[in-house]
């Protein structure tokens, strides 16, 4: 066996893992490439020519930037509301013993276990039967987004809280911090990474949601709905610009976090 062959054999699983990662990234490469595409026809799925024009004028296609801004506004609002309500619930679940705790757990878990099409259609059924059928739009989307983000927030914050040693809070109380000070000086700073993760998750879930939104949006157009609509007609390359930009932002987040972690580890040793 050659040296390379032996390496492959020994690290077979690792190699396989990298291949799967490639599969995950293949479409991203296409999206990045297509963001520089100068399409010949309106319904183009091929790379026809290189241009930076799309990056310079991302708002050129009619309604695209409006849709992005609608999605951003809904995403931010839904994140704030869902993170606040979900964090409160997570505290109740981890830090308190009360009757109906396991039933509540199930109740919080269920929305995550329901297909989006069911969540969306049942909300629509409610809106229609309660006479809001004609007023679907920004607020009904927001309501839906908060609803499906909530469970994810609870689960994420709960995990962080459950992993926190409650002796730290006892130590704070032992050191003359009252309940309020204990919360703000010890509990909150320690749970904050969990809350931040929950907020990021909420935002990306909200920004990316299509199935539930599409059913409850009325005439309002979010970014995913814009993409969906243009997929039926023409696909402006600017969509790929937005997709690439979002990916790069996320990547920068991730790399910065990893670098920070590495640096902290280095100063430790």
């Amino acid at each position: 066996m050659t040296r390379f062959g032996r390496f492959i054999a020994r690290n077979f699983v690792l190699v396989l893992g990298f291949v799967v990662l490639l599969y995950l990234f293949a479409p991203i490469v296409v999206v990045m490439l297509m963001s520089f595409n100068a399409p010949k026809s309106r319904l183009s799925y091929t790379f026809d020519g290189f241009t930076v024009d799309n990056w310079l004028h991302p708002c050129r296609p009619f309604g695209l930037c409006d849709a992005v801004s609608t999605s951003l506004r809904i995403g931010l609002l839904a994140t704030v509301v869902a993170t606040a309500l979900g964090t409160l619930m997570a505290f109740a679940m981890v830090r308190h013993r009360f009757r109906g705790r396991s039933a509540t757990n199930l109740f919080i878990f269920l929305p995550m276990a329901s297909p989006e099409i069911v969540l969306g259609s049942s909300l629509l059924a409610l809106f229609v039967s309660s006479g809001f059928g004609g007023r679907l739009g920004f607020w009904t989307i927001l309501i839906a987004h908060v609803m499906f983000c909530l469970s994810f927030v609870v689960v994420t914050v709960k995990a962080r809280l459950a992993g926190m040693d409650s002796r730290l809070e006892q130590a704070a109380m032992d050191l003359y911090a009252n309940e309020w000070q204990t919360f703000w000086r010890v509990t909150f700073p320690l749970v904050f990474p969990g809350i931040l993760a929950a907020a990021l998750l909420s935002f990306s879930l909200s920004f990316d949601d299509f199935i539930i939104t599409n059913l409850n949006a009325g005439t309002t157009v979010t970014f995913p709905m814009y993409v969906w609509g243009s997929a039926q007609r023409d696909i402006p390359p600017q969509i790929n610009v937005i997709g690439t930009a979002m990916f790069l932002l996320a990547l920068i987040f991730v790399l910065a976090g990893e670098l920070g972690r590495r640096r902290r580890e280095r100063t430790r040793s």
Partner: peptide, 28 residues
């Protein structure tokens, strides 16, 4: 470990509709 884990999640910050559309191109 952490970096690879992040890489698993990272594609999901590109709208999944856009990613599905790019599969359309890959498989065309």
């Amino acid at each position: 470990k952490n970096l690879m884990l992040a890489l698993v999640i990272a594609p999901f910050f590109t709208s999944f509709l856009i990613r599905t559309l790019s599969w359309k191109m890959l498989l065309s």
